[in-house]
Amino acid sequence: LVRYRTISKIPQITLNFVDLKGDPFLASPTSDREIIAPKIKERTHNVTEKVTQVLSLGADVLPEYKLQAPRIHRWTILHYSPFKAVWDWLILLLVIYTAVFTPYSAAFLLKETEEGPPATECGYACQPLAVVDLIVDIMFIVDILINFRTTYVNANEEVVSHPGRIAVHYFKGWFLIDMVAAIPFDLLIFGSGSEELIGLLKTARLLRLVRVARKLDRYSEYGAAVLFLLMCTFALIAHWLACIWYAIGNMEQPHMDSRIGWLHNLGDQIGKPYNSSGLGGPSIKDKYVTALYFTFSSLTSVGFGNVSPNTNSEKIFSICVMLIGSLMYASIFGNVSAIIQRLYSGTARYHTQMLRVREFIRFHQIPNPLRQRLEEYFQHAWSYTNGIDMNAVLKGFPECLQADICLHLNRSLLQHCKPFRGATKGCLRALAMKFKTTHAPPGDTLVHAGDLLTALYFISRGSIEILRGDVVVAILGKNDIFGEPLNLYARPGKSNGDVRALTYCDLHKIHR
């Protein structure tokens, strides 16, 4: 019993810090008490220290592992850092350059016999395009090294910054494609005289377009951006097909006994025919423009016929181009109408809503002055909100995010209106959640004399007048207030005048 009563005193000691020596009952000389009392004092002292730490809000209350900052290894790049964003855009520009100039170089340097010394005699450094290609190869190699040090988000939505895990993730992902696209074939085969082989191998750079397509997928929600990307894709495919079309004609031209190829026909049409040795002929500019003209006309199913396939190889390629053109029509131009419709969806919704308003007016036989006010209010409210119901949009977000959005939407009023000066951010967040926005066209009466005042109004834009009878008592403008002081009276009061809008007004109100 003594032991039980001794232990039962522990909660009292913990909360009230009572010393055991003052209790005459606990001072009985028993061996059990002498053993338990020192333990009680020690526990009391420890609990006292913990309570003191909690009340003082000291940093040592938290466990040590929670006080440590997340460790980022040296030379690790955050995937959302500004440097990584700028670097990704730079790589994107280099990939676009590669997609345009690599097929052009591979096709127009394929057994090209233009006048001038061969590239091997001039030297590697004197070729501007080769120098640019070398810079692109170096940048792609540097990009691989950067990807080995860039964080990523795993399946659990955690940012991984450990170098080993980053390397394994990159090896399992895009490393092989990036490595093949970054191989400097110019340096590996330079001086061997195989410019045709170098041009063909350099087309491996186009593998990076797969990554670019995935990154550009984030802009699919913007109709104008999608339309622009589709047109660029169409032009890029036409450019690639033009390079292939020229390569076919250029390879067949020296081996044909009869002059029936499209390059021969082009030379005869523009007065620059090929001679018996295969030299001469149109310039590279004429060849490229004509090839691009043929691919565009074939892809769009126009086909004027002034550039036509004559050999079997050219006919087979033309059939493939027609098939590609039909697929592009289905996948690209078939979506253009939907994209344009999405661009004008706001206008369509406006006309639909206006039609419903006019049908309501016609069905209920609203008189002319009231009908005009109804239409003007709808037009003004639509121009202010673009038909978007803010309350319906915010309803799907958590309250903390709703408060931040409301604070942002009402920031101008909260910053410049005098009653809100000096208020804490928590108070402003709470008030912003209570605001209701209303609009009024010129001549609209917001409050009639004798109406119950259940709200306090803040003028965000425009001006109003307060009338008693036919006498203008006051004219209020931006950041002015009218209405009933909230919670100042037990019952809502009545208006002693009319409140009429002089201009288009936007008002925020808080109800009782």
Score class of each variant (00 low, 15 high):
94 L>N: 05
161 S>Q: 09
257 D>H: 06
249 G>R: 01
170 Y>W: 01
294 F>L: 01
69 A>I: 08
172 K>M: 06
79 H>K: 01
356 R>T: 12
172 K>D: 01
213 A>K: 10
178 D>N: 01
357 V>M: 09
345 S>D: 09
105 S>A: 08
384 Y>E: 15
156 N>L: 12
291 A>F: 01
335 N>W: 08
274 Y>G: 01
313 S>F: 04
97 Y>T: 01
343 L>H: 05
142 V>Y: 01
395 K>E: 13
249 G>N: 03
277 S>W: 01
185 F>N: 04
96 I>V: 12
395 K>A: 12
341 Q>V: 07
349 R>A: 14
274 Y>H: 01
244 I>F: 01
362 R>M: 01
245 W>A: 04
110 L>V: 14
403 A>W: 02
258 S>W: 11
207 L>Y: 09
269 Q>H: 01
281 G>Y: 03
295 T>C: 13
110 L>Y: 05
68 Q>L: 12
208 R>L: 04
170 Y>S: 01
80 Y>P: 01
94 L>I: 08
420 F>I: 03
442 P>K: 09
346 G>N: 13
202 K>T: 01
428 L>N: 03
246 Y>M: 11
70 P>Q: 03
431 L>Q: 03
135 I>E: 01
301 S>P: 04
395 K>C: 08
438 T>L: 11
95 V>H: 01
99 A>V: 01
242 A>R: 01
108 F>Q: 01
254 P>S: 15
385 T>L: 03
142 V>F: 09
312 N>G: 01
277 S>Q: 09
79 H>W: 01
246 Y>E: 01
428 L>I: 06
364 H>C: 04
195 E>L: 13
222 Y>A: 10
260 I>T: 04
423 A>W: 01
188 L>V: 13
143 D>M: 01
429 R>L: 03
444 D>W: 08
338 A>D: 01
196 E>D: 14
401 L>P: 01
440 A>Y: 05
120 T>N: 15
223 G>R: 04
284 I>M: 11
257 D>T: 08
135 I>D: 01
328 M>C: 13
388 I>Q: 12
207 L>G: 15
90 L>W: 05
256 M>V: 12
229 L>C: 09
364 H>M: 03
436 K>N: 10
181 A>W: 01
258 S>C: 03
271 G>Q: 03
212 V>T: 06
430 A>L: 12
401 L>F: 04
223 G>I: 03
425 K>Y: 09
197 L>V: 08
174 W>I: 01
133 D>C: 01
216 L>Q: 03
436 K>W: 05
251 M>D: 01
438 T>G: 04
335 N>Q: 15
199 G>K: 15
195 E>Y: 10
368 N>G: 09
380 H>V: 08
71 R>K: 15
82 P>S: 07
343 L>D: 12
250 N>I: 14
89 W>L: 01
394 L>Q: 04
160 V>S: 01
351 H>C: 03
302 V>I: 02
115 E>K: 13
437 T>K: 11
410 N>V: 07
118 P>K: 15
201 L>S: 01
256 M>L: 15
118 P>V: 07
69 A>L: 05
92 L>C: 05
190 F>Y: 13
423 A>H: 01
192 S>T: 08
253 Q>R: 15
186 D>C: 11
144 I>C: 04
296 F>G: 01
286 D>H: 01
329 Y>A: 15
301 S>R: 07
432 A>M: 10
446 L>G: 02
110 L>A: 14
307 V>W: 01
295 T>V: 13
229 L>Y: 05
436 K>Y: 11
419 P>M: 04
92 L>W: 07
106 A>M: 08
390 M>A: 05
192 S>E: 11
66 K>F: 12
285 K>Q: 13
421 R>T: 13
351 H>I: 03
346 G>L: 03
275 N>T: 09
359 E>F: 02
178 D>I: 01
115 E>C: 07
161 S>D: 14
402 Q>H: 03
353 Q>A: 09
439 H>C: 07
208 R>D: 01
335 N>H: 12
289 V>D: 01
423 A>K: 02
415 Q>L: 13
106 A>N: 03
161 S>E: 10
367 P>A: 08
350 Y>R: 04
245 W>V: 01
254 P>H: 03
380 H>Y: 15
182 A>G: 13
233 T>N: 01
208 R>M: 07
337 S>E: 06
309 P>Y: 01
348 A>K: 08
365 Q>L: 03
136 V>Q: 01
233 T>Y: 04
176 L>R: 01
186 D>A: 14
295 T>A: 15
336 V>S: 03
283 S>A: 01
428 L>K: 15
217 D>H: 05
289 V>H: 03
113 T>C: 01
79 H>P: 02
73 H>D: 05
226 V>C: 12
417 C>Y: 12
120 T>V: 07
157 E>I: 12
205 R>A: 04
283 S>T: 05
68 Q>K: 15
357 V>L: 07
69 A>E: 12
206 L>E: 01
82 P>I: 10
374 L>F: 01
94 L>K: 01
314 E>R: 01
155 A>K: 14
182 A>W: 01
121 E>I: 11
140 F>T: 01
258 S>A: 09
189 I>A: 14
425 K>D: 13
266 L>S: 01
183 I>Y: 03
401 L>M: 08
179 M>F: 12
366 I>H: 01
139 M>V: 10
324 I>T: 03
376 E>I: 14
110 L>P: 11
253 Q>T: 11
344 Y>G: 10
108 F>L: 01
263 L>Q: 01
235 A>D: 01
423 A>C: 10
174 W>G: 04
414 L>A: 02
390 M>F: 07
305 G>W: 01
261 G>N: 08
98 T>V: 10
187 L>Y: 10
310 N>T: 15
428 L>C: 08
353 Q>I: 01
445 T>F: 13
426 G>F: 03
245 W>T: 01
142 V>H: 01
299 L>N: 01
275 N>G: 03
141 I>M: 05
335 N>K: 12
278 G>T: 01
231 M>H: 05
358 R>D: 01
396 G>C: 15
292 L>N: 01
352 T>A: 09
193 G>Q: 13
112 E>H: 14
449 A>Q: 10
273 P>T: 01
323 L>D: 01
76 T>Q: 05
280 G>K: 01
227 L>Y: 03
143 D>Q: 01
264 H>M: 01
239 H>M: 01
279 L>N: 06
302 V>Q: 03
212 V>L: 13
253 Q>Y: 06
133 D>N: 12
190 F>S: 13
173 G>C: 05
186 D>K: 14
308 S>V: 04
218 R>C: 08
240 W>K: 01
208 R>P: 03
298 S>C: 15
429 R>A: 05
293 Y>P: 01
119 A>G: 14
123 G>T: 06
99 A>H: 01
342 R>Q: 14
110 L>S: 15
409 L>V: 08
331 S>Y: 09
266 L>N: 01
266 L>G: 01
111 K>T: 05
442 P>Q: 14
98 T>D: 03
140 F>W: 03
169 H>V: 04
370 L>H: 01
393 V>G: 02
268 D>M: 13
276 S>V: 04
215 K>S: 08
123 G>Q: 01
236 L>Y: 01
385 T>W: 04
208 R>C: 12
106 A>V: 09
422 G>F: 15
222 Y>P: 12
396 G>P: 04
369 P>R: 03
435 F>L: 09
442 P>G: 03
200 L>W: 06
428 L>M: 06
187 L>S: 13
345 S>K: 03
397 F>T: 07
336 V>E: 03
362 R>P: 02
384 Y>I: 15
138 I>Y: 04
238 A>V: 03
214 R>A: 11
444 D>N: 10
114 E>M: 13
215 K>V: 03
208 R>S: 13
175 F>M: 05
86 V>H: 01
236 L>W: 01
352 T>N: 09
229 L>I: 11
216 L>N: 04
217 D>G: 05
262 W>G: 01
310 N>G: 01
268 D>L: 14
